[in-house]
Design a protein around this nucleic acid. Sequence first.
DNA 1: GTCCAGGCTCTTT
DNA 2: AAAGAGCATGGA
Length: 284
Amino acid sequence: MDQEYRVKNIRNFSLYQIADSGQSFRWIRQSEESYTIIALGALIQAYMDGDDLVLKGVTQDSFEEKWAHYFDLDRDYDHVKASLRNRDSFLDKAIEYGSGIRILNQDLWEMMITFIISANNNIPRIKNSVQALSETYGDYLGKVNDKPYYSFPKAEALAKASITDLRKCGLGYRDRYIKRTSQMVLSNEVDLELIMTESISKAKGELMKCMGIGNKVADCILLFACGHVDAFPVDTWLKKVLKTYFDFESSKQVEVNAFIKEKFGRYSGIAQQYLFYYIRNINN
DNA sequence: GTCCAGGCTCTTT
DNA sequence: AAAGAGCATGGA
């Protein structure tokens, strides 16, 4: 991990807020504003040096090839925020509070399994399960501070695993969802290429063929892996936000979709992330 | 002990 | 299309 790449004068960017916003479960905090990140089959370090983001283990080539996109550095968040501001006072406060949040562009397969695990679960447990899966079925990547780290396992490894071994990773009843979805991916019964390239509605339909991927989990995957910043996951927290601060409550999917589109516009998914981060932090 | 967590599947209405 | 039961697990 000798190579390093520096992004100078970065704006609208906080490692802490990104790590704490419930979109990635493999950022390990080493110190103030310094993180070990396991992503895209690699192990890197990220820390802030003043207004510069420094990435260790990243070359200029790999930065341009994948890490710039991973951190969503091509997106103009001043423009995003301008589009979202003055729509609602609670959203304005959420944007201010989480001003350094970015939507990471993560690996599709990893997000599928990770967010299957997330269903009816809590974030510390999701992290533990993802780590256990990686340690058991992933590849050794290297050590940081004497601690070994492992890549996220491939579909083949999880498809071959037994249900009882999978459950040892703390997955609960989701073990069979993960095995079944892994088999579907391995056999191309579900088409990852299509999910990455097709429209949001077609991609969502393809995702929801998978065992364990319903409406909300599909939206998380579309937002955190596929670049669909208009995917708006509604979990228990967002239900509370919509009810309490937007006076909106409905179990009819058509009504929910219409409200979100009208209220938040084309960056609704990013708005959702500001709201999620804000409501969780003001409640704890 | 109960309640809840970035909900889903399966069944019934 | 929508509502309801059941679901593993660990922390509050």
